[in-house]
Design a protein around this nucleic acid. Structure first.
Length: 486
DNA sequence: CATAAATTGCTACTCTCAGT
DNA sequence: ACTGAGAGTAGCAATTTATG
């Protein structure tokens, strides 16, 4: 599926940039000939502003070697421009390599605006970081899907969000300069200014994150958002707590993301001059970093469990990967009050241990096995942990990472087996499910030792697969959180 | 320094969903 | 069928920041 994206490129050394600033002229690219990619020849229409001034200044401009008038219409003139070798050229030769095609390119003093068609989202995602590594400031202003014309709620906007966005655009809230204040938008909608701000923000964020279809409205709204690429700032491996600023008072998702976008991806990178962080918040961040460093040195994972919102606890995984207990239980039913725990399997430090009811399944052994920096389960917060704690005198103290909710964030639903299937995680031909596990246990109670073997094997598979699952999901979340949604 | 805007952090509420 | 944790949604108050 083709994707059309609009970018703005900004760099002082873009072709004719200083001349455009002086003359207020706008250039529309008609054609580009790039026999030598370092020195493309552009045919551009100049309009608006002072064209005589532009022509004189252009001839003196270092960013081009030659400017020739080709055609003189009344209000606009066509020039042939030979771009010089030392000029920044965002679209050469990268767009060819990316298989992107230029649909429209316009230069003004504000930078170069380009509308490009990409064959797919992957090539679009790859495009931006490539440009950015050359020091050019790139703003993604909009992404338009070529399919689904006219569908309105492909963006995933709620009706309130949609209404807010349309109202804001109609009133000129997104105009530059603003033609309406937030209060105007709030008035029109009949809600508080905060509510209006949130609705508009949520709407424009979602529009940016998904396909746009029509809607100049959405396009305009997104114009103010910088979809900066974090690509080049990625830590080599997965995210760790040292990349996180969320726990500091005054820092939420928005501020943390802004820090990352400005290259502050590690506690070491932080300083008080960071954008979007004032004096108060900066002090809070320093204070958090100090505490967190101490906690990390002590191996105090509880600190992070308390400091991080639950949906960010997964960031702790890489830090404590050597001391994680993956666990899964089998029972005789779903209700902890009327059913018994039959087996418990724990994968910890590379070893899988299985405790069996009536044998070695005791409170002491359970506590011992689950004593880790982090315990990991699937739906264990609702099922496994309460089940164990209700039936045995055990408290699971360690921070508990429940993979079910992480998977849900990635749209992986349908239960553990379904998720594993979706991710291609091997089950080794284990054709057992929870119901069958109950039956196996009862057969064992009736004297069938093989049934127990099979039950244990199934249980161990589950525990071990949790590690594979977490590795996979953590990798995906890492991308999701760090990388732009372009 | 005043103001508008952005953001966080809180509460209250609904709704989805997965375990054996 | 159960069930309750947690996600999502919304709104408001208070705090913080940006901007001229």
């Amino acid at each position: 599926m083709g994707v059309i994206a609009e970018f703005t490129f900004q760099h002082p050394n873009l072709p004719l940039m200083s001349t455009l600033e002086e003359s207020g002229v706008r250039l529309d690219l008609e054609q580009a000939v790039a026999e030598d990619p370092e020195r493309p020849v552009l045919f551009v229409w100049a309009s608006h502003g002072n064209l005589d001034h532009f022509e004189a200044a252009a001839c003196e401009d270092d960013s081009v070697d030659d400017v020739t008038l080709v055609e003189d219409a009344d209000e606009r003139r066509l020039y042939r421009v030979q771009v010089s070798e030392r000029t920044e050229k965002p679209l050469y030769p990268l767009d060819d390599r990316m298989e992107a095609s230029r649909l429209a390119v316009t230069s003004t003093a504000d930078g170069v605006e380009a509308r490009l068609r990409f064959p797919d989202r992957e090539s679009l995602s790859a495009f931006q970081p490539r440009i950015e590594t050359r020091g050019i400031d790139v703003t993604l202003r909009g992404v338009f899907s070529q399919t689904d014309p006219g569908l309105t709620d492909q963006n995933g906007l709620s009706s309130k969000q949609r209404t807010a966005l349309v109202t804001a655009v109609e009133l000129g809230y997104y105009g530059v300069p603003r033609e309406a204040s937030l209060a105007d938008v709030a008035d029109e909608l009949g809600v508080s200014t905060q509510a209006a701000s949130e609705r508009c923000d949520a709407a424009s964020t979602r529009s940016c994150g998904t396909n746009w279809t029509d809607s100049a409205a959405a396009g305009t709204a997104c114009g103010r958002r910088t979809a900066g690429s974090l690509y080049r700032w990625l830590p080599a491996s997965g995210m760790r707590v040292e990349n996180s600023f969320i726990p500091a008072p005054g820092v939420g998702e928005t501020t943390e993301r802004r820090l990352w976008e400005h290259g502050v991806t590690h506690w070491d990178d932080f300083d008080a001059s960071a954008p979007g962080v004032g004096e108060t918040t900066a002090q809070n961040v320093y204070s958090f970093i100090g505490d967190a460093r101490d906690a990390l040195d002590r191996g105090d994972t509880q600190y992070f469990a308390d400091a991080f919102p639950n949906n960010a606890l997964w960031r702790l995984y890489e830090n404590v990967a050597g001391d994680v207990a993956f666990f899964d239980i089998e029972t005789t039913g779903l209700d902890k009050r009327s059913s018994d725990v039959t087996t418990v399997s724990v994968l910890h430090g590379g070893d899988t241990t299985t405790l069996v009811r009536g044998d070695d399944l005791t409170a002491e052994n359970l506590a011992d096995l689950l004593d880790a920096s982090l315990v990991v389960s699937f739906n264990g917060k609702r099922f496994d942990q309460p089940f164990i704690e209700h039936n045995y005198d055990v408290d699971v103290d360690a921070p508990h990472l429940d993979l079910m909710y992480l998977c849900r964030r990635l749209d992986l639903t349908g239960g553990l087996k379904q998720v594993e299937a979706d991710l291609g995680i091997d089950r080794g031909g284990m054709d057992v499910d929870g119901r069958e596990a109950v039956r196996l246990w009862h057969r064992y109670e009736d004297g069938d030792e093989d049934a127990l073997d099979r039950l244990v094997e199934y249980n161990r598979y589950d525990a071990q697969n949790l590690q594979t699952l977490l590795d996979t999901v953590a990798g995906r979340l890492h991308q999701e959180v760090f990388e732009p949604h372009a």
